[in-house]
Amino acid sequence: MLELEGVYAGYKDLRVLWGISLRVGEGELVALVGPNGAGKTTTLRIISGLLKPTAGSVRFYGCSLDREPPHRIVEMGISQVPEGGRIFTGMSVEENLELGAFTARARREKEQRMKWVYQLFPRLEERKNQRAGTLSGGERQMLAIGRALMAQPRLLLLDEPSFGLAPILVEQMFEMIQEINQQDVAVLLVEQNVRAALELAQRAYVIENGRIVGEGSGDALLSFESVRSAYLG
């Protein structure tokens, strides 16, 4: 469903991506792992249209995303949970979720969708009238994911969903991601927590210095020598 081919991108004089190619199939859970500064977040920004490639192409169901503004890309079915969640702290939990369903397509089924999100994250329903800024770190992350799901994405991009969470919450978070994926939502997961990401993902890419240096099933990469020595110690 999603295909990146030979994508180059960067900021001003700094080139970050050097010809990235990757794809995510319908309903797949794909991980993108690599060290800090390798270009993981930049790759997600490219897919969401926040940054445009200088060369190469991004396609979603065969349609080029190169000229689409970011809000159109959400409408087409790609939602991103940015690093740190970036929830609207000054608004209530429920308002955050409502905003997630801003697109015309999502707004029609807002009510059912919200029920589903509350089922996934009962904590959010308990706190729905609370200001989002008062939530704990784990709850904020849940809200960020719930908010992205409100847009009814076909593909969910997750940027470091486990970052800053206590170990026990990290485990819950990964279970949650799996559950979402089982609801027929494809997931592209960017993670620092390489072992957990590779265990969860059906396929994974390893990115270094803006280039894809490894690709395979999660299990295969887990036993891949360079990955082991670099990330798993």
């Binding site: 969401s48 926040l50 970011p70 809000h71 959400v74 409408e75 939602s79 991103q80 940015p82 970036r86 929830i87 609207f88 702290t89 000054g90 608004m91 308002e95 409502e98 905003l99 997630g100 801003f102 697109t103 999502a106 908010r147 992205a148 847009a151």
Partner: peptide, 18 residues
């Protein structure tokens, strides 16, 4: 609400499809 969201964090607002 979209106006308030944009005021708080325009990039996050963009990612909502605004």
């Amino acid at each position: 609400k979209a106006i308030r969201a944009t005021a708080q964090d325009w990039e996050a607002a963009t990612l909502m499809g605004i």
